[in-house]
Simulated scan of single mutants.
Amino acid sequence: MSETIRLEYRPPHDFADLLGFFAKRAIAGVERVDADSYRRVFTLDGKVGEFVVTHATRGHALELRIDFADTARFPDIAARVRRMFDLDVDIAAVNAHLGRRRHLQACVARHPGQRLPGGWDGFEIAIRAVLGQQVTVAAARTLTERVVRRFGREVETMQSGKVYLFPTPETLAGADLGGLGITGARIATLHAIAAAVRDGRADFRADRPLAEFVRLWTALPGIGEWTAHYLAMRAAAYADAFPAGDVVLRKAVARGDEPVPARTLEAMSQAWRPYRAYAVLHLWRSTMA
């Protein structure tokens, strides 16, 4: 069954920026992103589906076309896509708060539609985050595609032909990840994440305090504060997640060439609460201008 659903949002919304973010990280065979749309294959309840997101031709809305056998799950799919594209935040409140802060005023004025890029599946984001530790975005995408080609299930859809489903926690928990260019330490972390998610010892629920979410994830081997806060931002939509140790952020607020200490940035960020994750995106974006 196919249906197109209109997803309203409060403007401004920088849809083009989100597409650009997703395009740099898109997994060939799983996702396809161009200047106007985001498309991916997924599985729910053992059934394979596909969706494509475009901007509506009128009004403040995105259009979501879903191809999936079970129409009863369409509201759930739409809710997940709303989180992916951060459609429910009160962006006026975010901008009013951050726009008064010295390091963010120009950023907010330049990009008032900045949103948090989410993801379809928390487990997928976690695996990709570990593969991206200390390597470039392009290198992380290459490693992820290798994992998907070896362990993802190949399926065929009416719209895209042969595509891949991202590997499940059950598959990756015991997968032989050797020979893919992944270090032994990261292989151990990937196995630990997959087993923890499979067994219910780790999840991506946002109904707990941020500090508790971070403690849950940093208890796993190879998961530090940066990765835990990154997961909080992208997999669980915590608006106040803040990886204070991030070197790019520490450089973005520095007066000279040397990045400020993480503790200095953490103290500075207190004035940006409860929207520190939006500050992160603004500051990252400011370094690419």
Rank of each mutant, 00 (worst) to 15 (best):
T4E: 00
I5Y: 10
L7N: 03
L7E: 13
P12Y: 11
H13A: 01
H13L: 09
F15Y: 14
A16I: 03
L18K: 03
G20L: 04
F21C: 09
F21P: 13
A23I: 05
K24M: 15
A26P: 13
V30P: 10
E31W: 04
D34L: 00
D34Y: 08
D36N: 12
S37W: 01
Y38C: 04
Y38N: 04
Y38I: 05
R39K: 09
T43Y: 02
D45V: 06
V48Q: 06
A56M: 03
T57C: 10
R58P: 11
R58S: 11
G59R: 10
A61M: 12
F68M: 11
P75H: 10
D76R: 12
A78S: 05
A78L: 10
R83L: 15
F85W: 00
V89K: 04
D90A: 09
D90I: 07
D90V: 06
I91L: 07
A92F: 15
G99P: 15
G99R: 07
R101D: 15
R102G: 13
L104E: 06
Q105M: 12
A106Q: 13
C107M: 08
V108R: 03
A109L: 14
G113A: 08
L116Q: 09
L116M: 11
G118C: 02
D121P: 05
D121L: 07
G122W: 08
G122C: 05
E124P: 01
R128K: 10
R128A: 14
R128N: 09
R128S: 14
G132L: 12
T136W: 01
T136F: 01
R141K: 10
E145A: 09
R146P: 12
V147L: 13
R149A: 15
F151A: 04
R153E: 12
E154A: 15
E154P: 14
V155R: 03
T157Q: 00
S160V: 13
G161I: 14
P167V: 12
P169R: 00
T171V: 15
G174V: 14
D176Y: 05
D176S: 04
L177M: 11
L177Q: 07
L177T: 09
G179L: 10
L180I: 10
L180S: 02
G184P: 05
R186W: 07
A188Q: 12
L190H: 03
H191P: 10
H191M: 08
I193F: 02
A194R: 01
A196R: 00
D199Y: 02
G200N: 00
D203L: 01
D203C: 02
D207S: 02
A211K: 14
R215S: 13
L216T: 06
L216D: 09
A219Y: 07
T227Y: 01
A228C: 08
R234F: 13
A236V: 02
Y238S: 02
A244P: 12
V247S: 08
V248D: 04
L249V: 12
K251E: 04
A252N: 10
V253K: 03
P259I: 08
A262P: 06
T264N: 01
E266M: 12
A267T: 14
M268G: 11
M268C: 07
S269Q: 03
A271K: 08
A271E: 15
R273S: 06
P274T: 01
P274M: 04
P274N: 05
Y275I: 05
Y275G: 08
R276C: 04
Y278Q: 08
V280H: 02
R285M: 03
S286H: 14
S286P: 08
